[in-house]
Nucleic acid binder design. Structure first.
Length: 445
RNA sequence: GGCCCCUUCGUCUAAGGGUUAGGACGCGGCCCUUUCACGGCUGAAAUACGGGUUCGAAUCCCGUAGGGGUCACCA
């Protein structure tokens, strides 16, 4: 059987780390099994869904390299939902209710106040024809609820959480259609999963109770429920599900010069028994993907960990990978010299300036001035094709008797303006003999 | 409050009755490097607490504490 997964965001905002992780796992699982990955835009909420978010979601997934094999939109499928609703009405699996949001809210508060779970009391089921007529006369229109079968316990074997059991009597009959005719997420999602042939639903554990309800919907719709995998949520470093985490999106990572490979590598493994490793090749990540390796406790997402992983990923990137983002004059050789000193790609310009200039040199002592003057003369004697740094330091050692730090530090400072950086042996040829001579001269002016 | 899930080094986790409680990241030290970084080696570091069961418990049972989720006319 070929598998099919789906990522179903609602375009009411930007994707955040949690969403991205879910999308990634759905994509990875499909990749691993040779199945298909569906991007389904759950835009039943016309009020809050925005086209700009649809575009942003597509762009974010593309940036991360998560290509979808198929795309669907719920807003294009309202007719299908209506057909199924008609059937459910005929089967007596849905019922109209007339409470207002305020009335329901009040009921819940009373239940909670009495220490009882705030479950819908099914009052609408006991409405007499007169009461309904009275509501209609008032101009009230019903919303519709799905009627859970209290006599059938809900069970499934979750790919991550194992055997699950729910007592349907402890769940509220979900509202599926508002009085204005707009759909809520529950039923359309189940219908789509059936009609689009979804075999595996991978989502956060905040959906576990929804799954219980939807399993009965699958059954009421005459379909076999797909497999479910509910992954533990991500929490912030404080151990709480933070607001900050909820708003941390792809754009914020991009601003901080985080590579998509770093995000993918971290999110693919965080909370699993596989170690988080700097793996830039997603195929390797896919190879080890296994629901059995997912932990059930919430995992911590740490920006610092991401930043460190990102650094290692950057050190793995080939020239071809980053070419487009480098200064035009920077070639593969230069990349190789500078790469090990990068914290992230944002550092490239800083190091490239060391080569292209201008550099701002520190104040030198009179002794160093003298030393640098000798350095200038010695460098002038060298051929451009020679082993610049070795020959220069060798000649200087002989001429001045300096060695160690006293030898190379003034040179480094004069030539780069900094007291640290890439290996001078590799860096000096990039700077070039002529420019180096100019800088040594300038250090003495 | 009801229901569901969870608790092992700082972090992510391995070990489903007998292990010097293992690994990875981070941290410390050493080496390499005529700088910093990279890299290599090495070290410190954990079974939430309290009761049981058992010859023996991180592992099984009960309780306590803590964490997460959910109980929407959001998804």
């Amino acid at each position: 059987m070929t598998i099919k997964t789906r990522f179903a965001p609602s375009p009411t905002g930007n994707l955040h780390v949690g969403n991205i992780r879910t999308a990634l796992h759905n994509w990875m699982f499909a990749q691993k099994e040779g199945g298909t990955f569906l991007l389904r835009l759950d835009d039943t909420d016309a009020e809050r869904s925005k086209e700009e978010y649809v575009d942003a979601i597509r762009a974010d997934l593309a940036w991360l390299g998560l290509a979808s094999d198929e795309e669907q939109r719920q807003s294009a499928r309202f007719d299908r939902y209506a057909e199924h609703l008609a059937k459910l009405k005929a089967d007596g699996r849905v019922y109209p209710a007339y409470e207002t949001a305020q009335e329901l809210d009040l009921k819940r508060k009373i239940q909670l106040g009495r220490g009882k779970p705030p479950i819908y009391d099914r009052a609408a089921l006991d409405l007499t024809a007169e009461q309904v007529a009275a509501y209609e006369a008032e101009g009230r229109k019903p919303h519709w609820r799905f009627k859970l079968d209290h006599d059938t316990p809900i069970t499934w074997t979750d790919l991550i959480r194992g055997d699950q059991n729910f007592d349907p009597a402890l769940l509220s009959d979900p509202v599926i259609l508002r009085e204005d005719g707009s759909w809520l997420y529950m039923l359309p999602s189940a219908i789509d999963d059936i009609e689009m042939g979804i075999t595996h639903v991978v989502r956060g554990e905040d959906h576990v109770a929804n799954t219980a309800v939807q399993i009965q919907m699958f059954q009421a719709l005459g379909a076999k429920p797909p497999e479910f995998a509910h992954e533990a949520l991500l929490v912030g470093t404080e151990g709480k599900l933070s607001k900050r985490l909820g708003s941390l999106g792809v754009s914020s990572f991009r601003e901080k010069n985080i590579e998509p490979q770093a995000i993918v590598a971290l999110l693919a493994r965080i909370g699993t028994s596989d170690p988080v490793e700097p793996i830039a090749d997603v195929a390797q990540l896919i190879a080890t993907f296994d629901f059995a390796r997912f932990g059930r406790a919430p995992a911590r997402f740490d920006d610092e960990e991401l930043a460190q992983l990102n650094q290692k990923i950057v050190h793995l990137l080939d020239y071809e990978d980053v070419k487009d983002r480098l200064p035009e004059t920077m070639d593969a050789e230069a990349w190789a010299v500078i790469r090990p000193n990068l914290h992230d790609m944002g550092d490239v310009d800083q190091w490239w300036r060391v080569v292209t200039g201008p550099v701002s040199q520190p104040e030198f002592s009179p002794e160093d001035h003298e030393f640098l003057a000798v350095a200038h003369d010695k460098l002038e004697e060298l051929e451009a094709s020679s082993d610049l740094w070795k020959d220069l330091t060798g000649a200087l050692k002989e001429a001045t008797g300096r060695k160690g730090k006293g030898l190379f530090m003034p040179l480094r400072q004069a030539l780069t303006g900094l007291d640290h950086g890439p290996d001078m042996n590799a860096l000096l040829p990039l700077i070039g003999r002529e420019v180096a001579l100019e800088r040594l001269l300038k250090a003495n002016s």
